[in-house]
Design a protein around this nucleic acid. Structure first.
Length: 210
DNA sequence: GGAACGATTGAT
DNA sequence: TCAATCGTTCCT
């Protein structure tokens, strides 16, 4: 059995997600994503997130509900997984009330558990190449398109409380890899964490107060 | 029906 | 710096 386990009471409740998206994106830092799959348990500490909100031209829900983004308009606390660049998937957590198309993209995890399983899934050995990037962590954690809409308060894929994160530990910058809405300070990461996505490292750090 | 475009990654 | 690769979205 693995060293990391959790109880039902450790799972983030629906109320955590059912509120404004930006504070949820900030507070997801330091939480842990756990996938208890057939191959074994993998888990990682959330080190980098981005908020995608109403009125934001980079948000997939900007032009209304479509077949792809419908989960964003559904109940909070669910998985929104999308396919991009013809080969990758990214994982988001749906936030805010039903009817509001917002979500938080998980961009990087610090691997905690099931590292050999992650290595096998990724075909890479170095820890920093396992979960440092939105499509990388999807692969390392064994997340599948079939998990679209999955309730993250239910096994086998849950988000749990882990370690508190103070404001001083949080850096705020613009988001990575977008063209419109590029000036909005909606990216959050754990300052100094070595598992931040590579592209993210170079995007200007506007930390300041927010 | 057609075309442009990615919330990326890995190799050059 | 650049190719890989294809579903989604929007236009005709």
């Amino acid at each position: 059995m693995s060293g990391l386990y959790h109880r039902k009471k450790d799972i983030l409740p629906l109320s955590f997600y059912a509120r404004d998206t930006v504070p949820v994106a900030r507070e997801l830092l330091g939480k842990v994503l756990v996938h208890n799959s057939a191959e074994g348990l993998t888990a990682g500490l959330i080190a980098e997130t981005e908020a995608y909100i109403q009125g934001d031209p980079a948000c997939h829900a900007y032009r209304g509900m479509t077949p792809r983004n419908r989960a964003m308009f559904g109940p909070p606390g669910r998985a929104y997984i999308y396919f991009t660049y013809g080969m990758h998937h990214c994982f988001n957590v749906v936030t805010a009330a039903p009817g509001i198309g917002e979500a938080v993209l998980i961009r990087a995890l610090e691997p905690l558990e099931g590292i050999d399983i992650m290595r096998k899934r990724r075909g890479r050995q170095r820890l920093r190449e396992l979960c440092s990037g939105p499509a990388r962590l999807v692969q390392a954690m064994g997340l599948e398109p079939a998990m679209y809409g999955h309730d993250l308060t239910e096994e086998p894929l849950v988000l749990i409380n882990w370690t508190p994160v103070s404001e001083e530990e949080v850096a705020v910058t613009t988001r990575v890899g977008i063209s419109s809405g590029a000036d909005l300070p909606l990216r959050f990461y754990l300052r100094g964490n070595e598992y931040i996505s590579k592209k993210g490292e170079t995007s200007g750090e506007n930390t300041g107060n927010l």
